[in-house]
């Protein structure tokens, strides 16, 4: 006689089947990632050369080979930089308000809630808003700056959330030690709290930048198109790398589609690099984070 009975076959099978399904789900999720990266590398590598990175599309005819994304890369860098200059101070100050001053009051709860809701604003709506407000209402021209404005709207909630999280991680002991020395609250925030949370905040900002650098829809509605180099983000249409990909992909010629793939490769490299560096900074700062 055995005391210990085996569990029923049906329970065992069910457990195994679910395990199989869970592994399958993960495999299914990885397939598109691998497929996308493979295709982008395969199709993009052909034109990924110095010529592509240093030339614009000016005077490149519909069927011509050659041409490049230099104007788009410049545009993206400028737009993302301006977007960061706008959204980081506002986002960071908002986070400081929520963590240090808000104290769960009605205003801070409202801001906190709408920051969450704002993360869900579709990027195309952010673009339409800048179009409606900046271009149509204020009568400003399409420009890199208008694009940056729409990107900054997408960046702000991300910056607020990540900065808020980092500020909350700063131990209260540090704040209290500073207060105990008679240091004013705002100086404590500037000299103690922010430096402690700095790397975390940088990581958050870089992830936010990585996210908006790949956005196409808001640019489409605000910077318009150009094939030429325009270094001035404040006047005249500019280009952006995602927009370049969209534009070239929509053209009927194989040479244009090739350029779209190479643009996609460049874009993915920039975005992944930002992601990677951000995560490395985060890891380097908190080596013992894992539980």
């Amino acid at each position: 006689m055995t005391t210990i009975q085996h569990i029923s076959t049906s329970r065992r099978i069910k457990d195994r089947v679910v395990q199989g399904l869970v592994y399958l789900a993960f495999a299914l999720a990885v397939v598109p990632l691998v497929s996308v990266l493979w295709l982008v590398i395969k199709n993009g590598a052909a034109r990924f050369d110095l010529d592509f990175l240093t030339h614009s599309m000016r005077n490149i005819g519909a069927r011509d080979v050659g041409g490049g994304a230099y104007h788009a890369i410049i545009g993206t860098l400028e737009q993302v930089l301006i977007a960061s200059l706008i959204s980081v101070p506002i986002g960071l100050l908002t986070a400081i308000y929520l963590v240090e001053y808000g104290n769960g009051g009605r205003l801070s709860r409202a801001i906190s809630f709408f920051v969450d809701v704002m993360t869900g604003v579709p990027s195309v709506v952010a673009g339409l808003f800048i179009l409606a407000f900046w271009v149509l209402f204020l009568g400003q021209p399409f420009s890199g700056f208008a694009g940056a404005l729409s990107l900054s709207i997408l960046m702000m909630p991300t910056v607020v959330r990540s900065a808020e999280e980092m500020l909350r991680l700063v131990p209260n002991d540090l704040r209290e030690a500073s207060y105990a020395l008679g240091v004013a609250k705002w100086r404590t925030i500037m000299k103690v709290v922010l430096p402690t949370a700095l790397t975390g905040i940088i990581t958050g900002v870089m992830l936010a930048v990585a996210r908006v650098a790949g956005e196409t829809a808001p640019l489409l509605l605000t910077v318009f198109f150009t094939d030429s180099i325009n270094n001035d983000p404040f006047s005249g249409p500019q280009m952006g790398l995602p927009l370049f990909v969209f534009d070239q992909a929509g053209r009927p010629n194989a040479t244009a589609v090739d350029r779209a793939w190479t643009g996609a490769l460049t874009l993915i490299l920039i975005v992944m690099l930002l992601n990677l560096v951000a995560r490395l900074i985060a890891r380097w700062r908190s080596p013992a984070k894992g539980r």
């Binding site: 990632l33 996308v36 295709l39 990027s123 196409t216 829809a217 995602p242 874009l267 993915i268």
Partner: peptide
């Protein structure tokens, strides 16, 4: 988990390109 997060890092326009071509 990071691998799955990377799916979110691929820009929308690249997915569009992949969708059409593949």
């Amino acid at each position: 988990g990071y691998l799955i997060d990377l799916l979110a890092a691929v820009p929308s326009v690249v997915y569009g390109l992949w969708g059409v071509a593949f």
